[in-house]
Simulated assay, not measured.
Amino acid sequence: MASSAESIRAYSGPPVFSFGFRPFFLFSAAWAAVAVPVWVASMSLGDGTVGGMDGRLWHIHEMLFGYLAGVIAGFLLTAVPNWTGRLPVTGLKLAGLFALWAAGRAAGFLPASMAVAATVVDSAFLVVFAGLIWREVLAAKNRRNLPVCLLVSMLALANIAFHLRGAIPLVGPGAERGAVAVVTGLIALIGGRVTPSFTQNWTQAKGILKGPTAFNRFDAGVLALTAVALVAWVAAPHSLVTGGAMVAAGLANLARLARWRGWLVRREALVWILHLGYAWLGVGLILLGLAVLWPDAVPFTAGVHALTTGAMGVETLAIMTRASRGHTGRPRVADRATTALYLLILSAAVVRVSAPFLVEWTIALLAVSAMLWSLAFAVFVAVYGPMLWRRSL
């Protein structure tokens, strides 16, 4: 059987469908840059709706199940062959999977009278993708990554539940929390692998002897605590016990992050951005916990956006830039444009999380945050789009 590298070299179709990260990173980033202005325009210039959906709900859906689902697909379609030793999905199969994702984005503009069709079309991508990941991991007997399969399946179910809110209103908020919890769990799990690994690689190359602390029982305990806290938040978001668990999980993740000695990589943006993205995870969990314990002092939306705009926005751009450079034969070193888009997404997160605390400035800060977010992803498309669309060096 040919190796992954041999399979990719033998591929002769359009370069964009030669590996999973190419179409999904490129078009997910483009969608992230466009979708936020669409939502803002619907609120300020239109009637507050997009297609047949309330604009706010459309925004939530497209960030969680559109943009983030696309980036997760691009990452896992690239990582799973390395984990399992199986051939990557390329060519027509990859194009078909991408077409399902794109059809879901188009379905979001269908009128309310076509809600059932929109639900079926949009739900298909994550269901098919989850089945694909299960097949690859099980075929390789790669038990270590079964939790990843489970989390992707839960994201697919959360998407279906999100669409059922019209018939069963109570499932809507739970679906939103479930999706946020799933992606947060993926960051804790996978970010907790790649951040210390890439940090170790960089410190070793620089001759630094004491790098990150290796994975041990402390890390396993932090992951378990995070999982318990997130499950509690999905099931009982207003419980004081949940609030305490979320704060404890956030503090534990920040302690875990400190053990990776991120200050050692302060000279390489391609590595330190991973540490800052993980820091947002800890901050987001703490803020969500405090919003339960002291709702009059800490707005719920601050915690949500610390996780979404902060942890998810920063981590996805960090992974997309590093993977795009590495898998297209370019040096794993951040250039000025890459550093600039990191600063843009970090600024977007800071402004967005600050907005609900500064009531008199909230509307203006939301507009600034939306602009910074879109700029960050537009810069990614401008700089990395040619790398992803063309053949590797």
Rank of each mutant, 00 (worst) to 15 (best):
V89L: 15
T90F: 01
T90C: 07
L94M: 09
A95D: 03
A95M: 13
G96N: 05
G96K: 04
G96T: 05
L97R: 00
F98I: 08
A99Q: 05
L100M: 08
L100P: 01
A106R: 03
A106C: 12
G108M: 12
F109T: 07
F109I: 10
L110N: 10
L110K: 08
L110Q: 10
L110C: 10
P111S: 12
A112W: 13
A112F: 13
A112S: 14
A112T: 12
S113D: 15
M114F: 14
A115E: 11
V116F: 14
V116L: 15
V116H: 10
V116A: 15
A117W: 09
A117E: 10
A118F: 05
T119L: 11
T119N: 08
T119W: 11
V121S: 04
D122Q: 02
D122G: 02
S123I: 03
L126G: 02
V127N: 02
V127Q: 03
V127Y: 01
V128C: 11
F129T: 02
F129N: 02
A130Q: 11
I133L: 11
I133Y: 02
R135S: 14
E136L: 13
E136S: 14
V137R: 00
A140E: 07
A140Q: 04
R144H: 08
N145K: 04
L146D: 05
L146M: 14
P147W: 07
P147K: 08
V148F: 04
C149K: 01
C149E: 00
L150H: 01
L150Q: 02
V152T: 13
M154S: 13
A156I: 06
L157K: 01
I160M: 11
I160F: 10
I160K: 03
H163N: 13
H163V: 10
H163Y: 08
G166W: 15
A167K: 05
P169I: 13
P169R: 11
L170M: 12
L170N: 08
L170K: 07
V171K: 07
V171I: 15
V171P: 05
G172N: 11
G172M: 12
G172T: 13
P173E: 08
G174M: 12
A175E: 04
A175G: 07
E176M: 08
E176H: 05
E176Q: 08
R177G: 10
G178W: 00
V180A: 10
V180N: 06
A181C: 10
A181E: 07
V182T: 15
V182M: 15
T184R: 00
L186W: 05
L189R: 09
G192N: 06
R193C: 04
V194I: 15
V194H: 01
T195W: 01
T195M: 14
T195A: 14
P196Y: 03
P196F: 05
P196T: 06
S197G: 03
S197Q: 08
S197A: 14
S197L: 12
F198K: 00
F198L: 09
T199K: 03
T199M: 04
Q200L: 12
Q200M: 12
W202A: 15
T203C: 09
Q204Y: 12
A205F: 07
A205M: 10
K206E: 12
K206Y: 06
G207S: 13
G207F: 11
